[in-house]
Structures are given as C-alpha cells and as structure tokens.
Simulated scan of single mutants.
Amino acid sequence: MILIKNVEIFAPESLGKKDILICFDKIAYISENTHIPKGNFPEIEIIEGNGLKAAPGIIDLHIHINGAGGEGGFNTRTPEMNLTDFTLNGITTCIGLLGTDGITRNMGALLAKSRALEIEGLSTYCWTGCYAVPTRTLTDSIRGDIILVDKIIGAGEIAISDHRGSHPSENDLIHLACETRVGGLISDKCGILHMHVGDGKNGLNAVFNLIDNSNIPFENLLPTHLNRNSLLRKQCVEYVKIGGFVDITTGIKNEGDEAVSASQLYNTLLKEHISPYHITMSSDAGGSMPFFDDKGNLTKLTRGMPNTNINSIKESIELGIPLELALIPLTSSPAKLLKLKNKGKITEGCDADLILLDNKLNINTVISKGKVMVQNYSPLVYGTFENS
C-alpha cells in the first residue's frame, strides 16, 4: 500500500490538494485527509506530495519498443528500448508497433518484447502489421490477430502517402479497416486502423475517401504524423471538424517552413474549438526519423526519443494551454479511444499509473501498476539487462 499525501491532483481535471491511497495495483481511495489506523494494520509507504502535481501516467500509442528503422542500411536499424527509457519519461502504458521494416522485424519479436516489458512493470499492447500491404500478421489475418492475441488491439502502422509504403488502393484500405473493426467488435477491443501518413502529395486524401466510400466509423481510424507538413496540418483541421480522430507526433519538431511541434498543432486545433478527445499524441520513439530530398535520397537520420511526450506537455503550457488540457492527448484521450478502461485518469478503482511532477513539470516520481518505478528523479527498477 502506498499513500501519497498532500499532492495537487490533475486527474487530468484539477481536483485540488488531496491524498491518494494505492492498494496493490489500483487507486483505492482519494480523500482530503487520510488517517492511517493505529495498531495491527498493514504497512503503508508514505510519499510526501507537497509541492508536487499528480497526473495520470503517459499512454504512448505509437512507439517502436523493439526498434525500427533501417532506411539507411542494416547498420541504421535502431535498437530495442529499455524499461527506463519509458519510466524516466513518465510512460506507464505503451502500444508497440512495426514500421518500414516488416522483414527483419516481425510480429513475433514485437509481441515478445511487449510481454517482456509487461513483466518488468509496464502495461503493454501492440498494433499488428507494418507499412506494407498485404501487411505482416501472426495469424492468417488482421482479424485473427486482434481476436486471438490478447495484446493486439488494432492494425498499424499502415503507410499511406509515402514512397516507402505499398500505395494501397481505396479498396485495400476499406478491406483493412473492415477487418480491423470486426476484429475489435468480436474481441471488445478498439479495432482501430492506425495509419502512418507520409510527405506524399496526396496527404490525407485516402482517409477522406475511406470515410466517403465506406461505412467505417471515425472511431476505427487513426491517422498519425499530421504535424509533419503544411498540407497535412490543413487537412487535419478539416478531418477533425467532420468528426475524425487524429494522432500528432511529439517527436516531430519545427523543421524549416513545413513541420511544426505537436503542441503548436494542438494549440491550433483547440483554437478551432475542436474537442481534445478527438486528439491524441504519441512519440514515435525507438523509430528512425529519416529525412529525404525531393528525389527520395536519404539526407539525414535521427532516432525518436520518448522524452518528447513530457516536453510537449511543457511546450503546451508555454503556449498558454492549461495543464488539464495539456495532459489529455497523452492520458485520458488515448485511454478512451483505445478502450483502455482503467487507464488515463486518477479515479478510485482505476489502475495506479501515476506521475508526480515538480513545479517545473519535471518527472519526480513514476508509479506503474502500483509499483514505484522512479523516485526523486532516479530509477528504482531497471530492466533485466540494464546496468543498475
């Protein structure tokens, strides 16, 4: 049992200063002042929360947990991520995925890494597939993967508008979306088709066509990387205004006149009076961040980092967005859209996934599934092969 005393709670809505009692892996009790009974009572670890802010643990729905990349040759394949890459950056729930490379990376390895991180202390899920269409699966279909594999919640990241993808036709995308949706219906999962959108000249046109020419609900489609260029930003606003859901990449920064940060696009969408519950953010951490010239030649290659999530929250605050709103795209919004029913909020009965932030919004403490993973800015728990 853990008792966090006198902490300012953002659930993500502001609840003021309260105590949070954690029992095993759940939030058991939230109160103004919790009194510990005297006598024969189980030992309770006390964490003094005065001067700290409690927020839900970050949910990163697009993260390459077992590495990705390879667009610059075999030596540019990025390595697997370690437990503290997540915990030091406040990530308590992640959804892993493949990317460009569905050959030297595969769904079996992704699922194994997901289970390893779960054992080490995180909550983990997976998207099935990769850029390519037909895409890579564990069973004979996307529908089969979602129904039969507990950790697989949808399909992604299927590439559109990108020279590295397979240029799926309109019927291809409709078929993929239907398979994903039905798999979700049968297994009571989100059944989302998660689409990587590249720098191609068609932008989000394929997604608009999918909506216009099929019966797939908006809730089953989630395009990502929409802050990468001006065309996508414009289409992003149009798409959300007609009811769509979008994911913004915190790992994309201001690059010349094209890309903008996740917080800048989020601020634009809020000014358009768009609900924050139609917007999620994710890091794309663990994946390569390649830059190509107009002839498709690789010019630069960097690696996505998980600290971009908490940095985006800070940047949102600097833009004048209240903390309650700044938290939503990385906590309660992905939890709601992905049907993670006990995640993304600080409420009695929900999973005890919490981060404690100091007055500069630096991460002081991380609790995942009721276990303290980080305290006083330092890891308490390391991954199996990390040097402690």
Rank of each mutant, 00 (worst) to 15 (best):
N6L: 05
A11R: 08
D19K: 06
I20C: 10
I20D: 09
D25W: 08
K26L: 05
I27T: 08
S31L: 00
T34N: 07
G39S: 12
I46P: 06
I47D: 01
I47M: 09
I47E: 02
L52C: 00
K53D: 00
H62I: 01
I63K: 02
I63L: 03
G67I: 09
G72P: 03
P79Y: 12
F86M: 15
L88R: 12
N89H: 10
L98K: 07
G102D: 09
T104D: 11
R105A: 10
A112R: 14
S114G: 12
A116C: 00
E120Q: 15
G121W: 09
G121S: 11
Y125F: 15
Y125L: 12
Y125A: 11
T128A: 00
R143Q: 13
R143K: 14
G144A: 11
I147H: 10
L148Q: 13
I153H: 08
I153R: 11
I153L: 15
S161R: 02
D162G: 02
H163K: 09
G165M: 01
S169G: 14
L173Y: 10
L176A: 04
E179H: 01
V182Q: 06
I186N: 03
I192H: 08
V197S: 07
F208S: 05
S214W: 00
E219F: 05
T224F: 04
T224L: 06
H225G: 04
N227Y: 12
R228F: 09
L231W: 02
K234E: 15
I242V: 03
T250C: 15
I252W: 04
E255L: 12
G256I: 09
G256D: 11
G256L: 09
D257R: 13
A259T: 00
S261Q: 02
S263C: 04
Y266F: 15
T268F: 08
L269F: 13
E272D: 10
E272W: 03
T280F: 10
M281S: 05
M281D: 04
M281V: 01
S288R: 06
G296E: 09
T299M: 14
L301A: 04
N307Y: 15
I310R: 03
N311S: 13
N311K: 14
I313N: 00
I317P: 02
G320C: 06
L325S: 12
L327P: 03
L330S: 10
L330D: 08
S332V: 10
S332I: 08
S333V: 11
P334N: 13
K336P: 06
K336Q: 15
L338H: 13
L340C: 10
N342G: 13
G344Y: 10
I346L: 09
C350T: 06
L354H: 11
L356G: 02
L357K: 01
V374S: 05
Q375P: 00
P379R: 06
V381W: 03
G383V: 07
E386M: 13
E386K: 11
N387W: 07
S388L: 07
